[in-house]
Amino acid sequence: MVGGSMERRSFVKSVGAISAVGMSGLAGCLGDESVTWMIPWSEGGGTDQYARQMQPLVEEELDGSIEIDNREGAGSMIGSEWLLNQDADGSVFGTVNPAGWTFTWRADPSLDWEPSEFEPIAYSGIFGYTIIVNNDYGIENFDELRDGYEDGDISGFAYQGSGSDSHLVTLLLEEEYGLNYDNAVPYDGGGPVQEAVLGDEVGAGIATNTSAAEAVDSGEASAIVNLMDVDLMDTFPGIDRISNYGDSLGWLTEFYQVQVAPPGTDEDTRQEIADAIEYAVEHEDTQEWMDETGNIVEFGNMDEAAERYNEAAIEEMEENVEEAVGGFDVFLDQTEEED
């Protein structure tokens, strides 16, 4: 990786790229203006990284400029609401992450819009939850983790925030899969969970597959259970699957990188963006990035994107939550009571 010299061509190419920062009015695909790609999370987060990895390739295919606009806040609801109210002229689209997105939307009764109002474009990747364990315990699968808690050999189980999807996963792991942890501890996001497990503040916790890959690379923790349906064997060889111990949890633990447009955006325009996203997803640079980082990159067309957040998907989630904990309202009331 490190070299004393640098290819002249790549240097010249880089100078060209950097000097493009100040350029405006590049020929856009959808009219002659740049297109805004709204990310409802802050810079540096997982969804932001996906978008910035693909941005140059999408620009290349659209033959125009893309401006990434981070509109973070309220668990992605601020950016989503902003996108909902933009003009349907193809000048703006955004990324949302169902099922987490639809879960957050459902958990906030103050929102007066429906996810299905957004027009689908495509999806470009998947990420989701795994269980990571500190290496000091020598635990290698879900069975051993259960035994570890039963015997008192391991203590504390971390999740990301009360009332969140990972909180519900934590409750389900106890009720449906027999994980009798002694103490479930909420942390303010994935980074703090990862840090807590690496530092052995808690023995295990829920981490996304990307932060699990970082935790594994640190040499301090292992990813032992895949909570998704998506295969993670390439990234974590030999990883156990939660579906070996009960029903699939994919409806709650898999998050898609779904591109959506404001209501009323016409299909041709969306298809043009979808084609550019497909090009970016299938490009060798992106594939290499996937291999190196463990990020799952996969293209889904307009219909497949819609299936991630349409009314049927939300209904299915409602039914699953009903069956698991008696419904959203029960879950939220219970959470509030605990807090």
């Binding site: 990786m1 540096g44 910035r52 980074g191 840090e195 932060s211 970082e214 690379d217 640190s218 190196e292």
Partner: peptide, 27 residues
């Protein structure tokens, strides 16, 4: 050393490392 983003700035930096196929960690 751990890929732990202590701030937004270091989160973007980690994103840069990953984008360029460099995995934070003991290596």
């Amino acid at each position: 050393s751990f890929g732990i983003p202590g701030s937004s700035s270091t989160a973007v930096l980690i994103g840069g490392l990953l984008m360029h196929r460099l995995q934070p960690g003991p290596s």
